[in-house]
Amino acid sequence: MNKKLKYGLLYAGLTIFLFIVLMPYIWLILTSFKTRVDAFAIPPKIFFKGTLSNYYEAFITKGMLHNLINSIIVMIATVVISMILGLPSAYAFSRFPSRGDRLLSNYLLGTRFTPVVVLALPLYLMMSRMGLLNTYVGIIIAHVAFNLPFVVWMMRGFYDAIPKEIDEAARVDGLGWFHIFLSIDTPLARSGVAATAVFCAINSWNEFLMALILTGRNTTTMPVAIPGLLTPQGTIWGQISAVGTVITIPVLVFAILVQKHMISGMTMGAVK
């Protein structure tokens, strides 16, 4: 009985806690389905007649669809490039320990912990000189710059988890290291690859500062485009909520899919 009461209290406590925590977010999602009148109603309406007009207004009329496509292009390119470049290096850290490793990993660490603004300034000036401002190439380079160290750090742990005996067996069969890396160990680490890719995608998708500085009219990603809805004529909260919902929902779905590997990725393997 006592134990039941204890668990009851725990569940109740956790539920209330999560409810309070998630309330602003739930409110955002609800607002995105409200008409202008309902959004500002006092007392706030919990039950209302839902509408998709905010989504239509924001994405079709205001052209946010274009920004959505920009975000997708930048995200996919960032993930693909970062993975192609980063996987071999992560593999080498795991499989071929050598004397330069310490230096290399400090080098990586330096780039990993550099605040975005520190890279934003030189990249802005260099890209303006090279004519890369307001191009996809510019923003993709910037996103690769801080995702690449991350890929190497995260994947290194996943490669470490694959037994080395497998490589030895393949070596005996006369396979080259590149072949083993590409067609044996990487497929074996596929859940790690998926988690890393998802993580990269989220980093790029949610990124604001670089995109704010390096993109222009044609290449603006979604996070940068939202503040454009904060107009002097009044803020269109319904549409902002609609865009906010569209930004967050795919991320949540993916995050929950690779949940298991998320934590180890976020602490760069320090916590397993």
Binding site: Y25, N206, P223, A255
Partner: peptide, 10 residues
Amino acid sequence: LIPMMVAPLV
């Protein structure tokens, strides 16, 4: 997991 996945800007 939700809060940390919401874009900081949002």
